[in-house]
């Protein structure tokens, strides 16, 4: 490894930079980061980690309490709760990830274009975004389910469209503000093309703020999709999902074995809180940097 580090001074300095950045984090942020990494790893490596097939209900072992065989017990259908939590993390995290990726990319492009063109184009896009704001994201998702059927796909696309205006509006206002700075005028005077200035210079300037916002959006999207699954409109059993788990375990709660309902709920809360804390942390840091510059 030593040869590798010597031959990559840039990589080395980058790693050093990350280490230094980690050292500057406050304890709540560190704890949240560790929790997220754990949940993420669990979801990614679920197939290798789960002791039982999460879709396979063992009807002879329903509503088992915590035990050596079933660490976190089983639900009313005899599914192993631990295995379901791991596997459910995949769909539960993938959904919001899709929402955030789509809404961020499209929102950023729309916002950037709107602010850069200005004038009537900007005004028109602004009005369209206002109309889109009027639709609650959850309602739009339910509408999509009604039209295109249950599952992960339709709600994710619908929610991505509903979230897009938030990113677009943020990018629009950031870009409009940044655009008035003389350094952007200087780029124009130097003869750079509008596309170069917008994509290569303006976008990176506002990028970190967009990222902070998207992180917070991830939390909201996770909550919305979990709610949808809880209502039975999202991911369908037997595909494991945290929201669906809570829904399926209503009977278990009544039977005095609430673990299979409580644990997915706890995970949803933990992930949402962790993501929000980290997003806010980066947002604050950016605000601080802005104030210093």
């Amino acid at each position: 490894m030593s040869t590798a580090t010597v031959s990559h001074p840039r990589l080395q300095s980058r790693l050093g930079g990350w280490a230094a950045r980690l050292g500057r984090l406050t304890w709540p942020v560190r704890i949240c980061a560790v929790l997220l990494v754990l949940v993420g790893l669990g979801a990614v490596f679920a197939p290798w980690l789960e002791p039982y097939d999460p879709t396979d209900g063992d009807l002879s072992n329903t509503l088992v309490a915590m035990s050596g065989a079933h660490w976190l017990g089983t639900d009313a259908g005899g599914h192993d709760t631990f295995s379901q939590l791991l596997a459910g993390g995949r769909t539960s995290l993938l959904g919001p990830l899709g929402v955030v990726l789509f809404s961020t990319v499209f929102g950023a492009l729309v916002g950037l274009f709107s602010a850069w063109r200005g004038g009537w184009v900007d005004a028109l896009i602004g009005r369209v975004l206002d109309v889109m704001f009027a639709f609650p994201s959850l309602l739009l998702a339910i509408l999509a389910v009604a039209l295109f059927g249950k599952g992960l796909g339709a709600p994710v696309v619908a929610m991505a469209i509903a979230y897009m205006p938030y990113t677009a509006r943020l990018v629009r206002s950031l870009t409009a503000q940044e655009k008035t700075r003389p350094y952007i005028a200087a780029y124009r005077v130097q003869g750079h093309s509008p596309a170069f200035i917008a994509l290569r210079r303006l976008l990176p300037a506002v990028g970190p703020t967009i990222l902070a916002q998207s992180t917070v959006n991830f939390g909201y999207a996770l909550l919305d999709l979990a709610a949808l699954s809880f209502l039975g409109l999202g991911v369908q059993p037997p595909t494991p999902d945290w929201g669906a788990m809570i829904n399926q375990s209503q009977a278990a709660v009544l039977e005095g074995q609430p673990l299979s309902a409580v644990l997915p709920a706890v995970l949803v809360v933990v992930v949402v809180v962790a993501v929000t804390v980290i997003g806010e942390h980066f947002g604050d840091r950016l605000a601080g940097r802005e104030a210093k510059a």
Partner: peptide, 23 residues
């Protein structure tokens, strides 16, 4: 053209704190 114009006239702005790309 854009490039020809750039070679014709350039400018130095008043505020050196805002006229350079911070990144």
């Amino acid at each position: 053209s854009r490039l020809a114009r750039a070679k014709a006239v350039q400018i130095v702005f008043q505020d050196p704190y805002l006229s350079l790309d911070p990144r």
